[in-house]
Amino acid sequence: MVEYKPQYYPGGSNVSANRRKYIDPNYKLRKLRTISDDDLVRLMGHRVPGEAYKSVHPPLEELGEPACPIRELVEPTPGAKAGDRIRYIQFTDSVYFAPLTPYMRAWMGHMRYRGVDIGVLSGRVPLEARERDLEKVAKELVETEIFDPARVGIRGATVHGHALRLDENGLMFDALRRFQYDKNKGEVVYVKDQVGVPLDRPIYVGKPAPEEELRKITSQFRVDGEAFRNDKELIQFVQRIHMLRTEAGFDPNRVKEI
């Protein structure tokens, strides 16, 4: 067999290389901040810190599963085992050099995390999972380099803002004013949870990254940054997929060795 090494993403630009890096599960995302478990729970707002997980069905052991070879093989996640509810965390990524694009969240998430349900929309990306599994995933998503406090928002509702101009402090627009810029500390602080319910105490999520740094780590193509059209390899790749899909739709037998 030909030696095979997963390649994750094509393209010759720095943006493509960043995409490859984030999708590759062997790349450890740089941790930039620490958000306590309780604060993360408060930010998501599904339960009160310390409260037991609510369940949607009894634990699998009590439930007794039907005779199915796949259930016997596939190990359930801890949340599924316990019968947790399925909850979500949702992000809005600004078009102004946020580290991730919406699609990247899905590609990366499905490579790195097990048992997740990710949906991509233009202005928001929900990630759903069993509650205790979600908390584990959300921690990495909020604590590492892929979360910039100014250009990424944790927004369960009223997500509008990804394509709006940044404010005077470089923060993405948020109609619910969930996050603010603390000028004294130079940090972004959440005063409301992801759906806009006021928090009993603010949660600091750290300093926004400088513009140059964001341009370096972003996975977004922009004409005023790295333009998609300049990544010839990637364009050719996308055109190749388009061509193959079309040719195959006409006659799959004619698509050979191309």
């Binding site: 796949i70 596939v74 899905a106 048992g115 949906g119 069993r130 599994d133």
Partner: peptide, 16 residues
């Protein structure tokens, strides 16, 4: 599908 929906024991993951 069997790995993702099977590990979460949940059908809603299928379209993703």
């Amino acid at each position: 599908t069997m790995i993702t929906c099977g590990s979460a024991r949940s059908m809603q993951h299928a379209p993703s």
